[in-house]
Design a protein around this nucleic acid. Structure first.
Lengths: 140, 140
DNA sequence: TAACTATATTAGTATACGCTTATATTAGCA
DNA sequence: TGCTAATATAAGCGTATACTAATATAGTTA
């Protein structure tokens, strides 16, 4: 029941350092401590990046923009995805806020382009899919 | 005279299973069609990958595992994150299902390790953060 | 001016998510 | 046999998410 570790980390406000324990008591007992080297801010930023693309509509939107070169306007994305205009606008907006799309205004249009972060992300996804070599089936 | 945006989308990647984007050569507006070259299966797989890491608990779990080399057991992760044991187990399980962690059983422990896909993903995130040092060690 | 197109924003809502708690299972050890 | 540690699983629940529909705001053209 009260098997809660209660390591007393709740409500912390330290925003820029590794907080986890680092007592590497390995060898005998297994449960020592592990740690990573990410600041809280970077962690939050990465999670936001991933959560943003971790949605079908937004991911496909990003793919569409990245696939075309030279910029894509929102109205071009709309007919390709089976969701409402509002949804597309929200998707583009969030992708932009997450630093995955650049945005430039031109007349009544808005042109979007993938950022380097987005492009490298997509590239890794393409390069590490289990069935990357074209074979069908693949994993599972 | 028509102030058409830089259209010129041609060559609609006639891949195997891009389902949407009817590409019905619309009227004179800007809104033609764009397309990406991803199959529905790959799309789904990528989104699942991203949605899995796009959560604080799971992302931090993955970071902890990836930071240590040689495998980490669940009980080592537990004290580092301020969530219950059940939450950690669910996180590790989902990361494994998403092909981001390998898992091997040893006695009463389960050892996890980051897959290449996970490692390259983390590497890109590290290398493309806005505040990343100019070094940009990300090779990928 | 009005009409029209592209986009943004808002409210409302059904659903999915992520956690906790409790319980079950599995493995080592006294 | 217990007993304990590590892990898995399930129900329950508060909250966040991702849409739609309606409306508002720009910019363009007639």
């Amino acid at each position: 029941m009260d098997a809660q570790p209660t390591d007393g980390r709740s409500g912390e406000a330290a925003t820029d350092s590794v907080e986890s324990a680092s007592t590497t008591a390995t060898e005998e007992g297994c449960c020592g401590g592990v740690a990573h080297a990410l600041s809280d801010r970077d962690l939050e930023f990465d999670v936001e990046t991933l959560a943003t693309v971790g949605n079908r509509t937004r991911y496909e939107t990003l793919r569409l923009v990245a696939a075309a070169d030279g910029g894509v306007c929102g109205c071009e994305v709309e007919p390709a995805l089976d969701v409402s205009q509002g949804a597309i606008s929200q998707a583009l907006s969030r992708l932009h806020d997450a630093d995955l799309l650049t945005r430039r205004k031109e007349g009544r249009w808005r042109y979007y382009d993938a950022t380097p972060r987005a492009e490298r992300l997509l590239s890794v996804l393409d390069g590490t899919r289990p069935n990357a070599d074209g074979g069908s089936g693949g994993r599972s």
